[in-house]
């Protein structure tokens, strides 16, 4: 079972002196359609220039063009173009930290009547993975929500409050990665 959750497809386009690799290591990143309970595999990929036209403030709440100079990723259902969530962040390698700048889900996924669950969580887990991949046991992600929302992030993602900033470090960052990489309970 585990093997099929991690299928590796290798394609080699061979010329005499060069090769192109098309290698896809499929990880199990999922969102849930709340109405049906159906699970969808998603991709989290860098935003492309062609995506900017569709990123209206009315659907994605912020002016995402302001984030061009930062790392910016989109979440889509695998094989679909429609963007369901976005995250931008900045790395501070000297502090072994990644600071989340903007995070959002599309308007139909906001609030109590949202279509899909786990969009924001998967985006936060994605940034957490980058932090652990680069900084190991020193990894940290941080964000500064409005004070009224801090409680929500502390409760939902087990974040820690320092001053006005929330952060996620080892061991909680590992638990979050495990949770979104596997079953809901984590390990």
């Amino acid at each position: 079972m585990l093997f099929w959750r991690n299928i590796l497809f290798i394609g080699i386009n061979k010329n005499k002196n060069s090769i192109n690799w098309n290698i896809y290591y499929i990880r199990k990143v999922e969102i849930i359609e709340l109405l049906t309970g159906r699970i969808y595999i998603v991709d989290i990929l860098p935003l492309e220039k062609s995506d900017y036209k569709s990123l209206t403030k009315s659907r994605y709440f912020f002016n995402w063009k302001e984030e061009l100079e930062f790392e910016l990723y989109k979440l889509t259902i695998k094989g679909h173009q429609d963007i369901l969530g976005l995250i931008s962040f900045e790395k501070y390698p000297e502090e072994w930290r990644i600071h989340v700048r903007l995070l959002t889900v599309s308007i139909e996924n906001k609030g109590l009547n949202k279509m899909y669950d786990k969009i924001a969580g998967n985006l936060i887990a994605f940034v957490s993975k980058i932090a652990v991949k680069e900084y190991g046991e020193l990894a940290c992600i941080s964000l500064r929500p409005k004070s009224t929302l801090a409680e929500y992030y502390i409760h939902k993602y087990n974040m820690r409050l320092t001053g006005a900033t929330l952060s996620l470090e080892v061991p909680e960052i590992i638990s979050l990665i495990n949770k979104y990489d596997g079953n809901e309970q984590g390990k």
Binding site: L103, V105, K110, A120, T148, Y153
Partner: peptide, 9 residues
């Protein structure tokens, strides 16, 4: 409702 749609951080 507010927390779920994201943050400007």
């Amino acid at each position: 409702l507010e927390g779920d749609f994201g943050i400007d951080s």
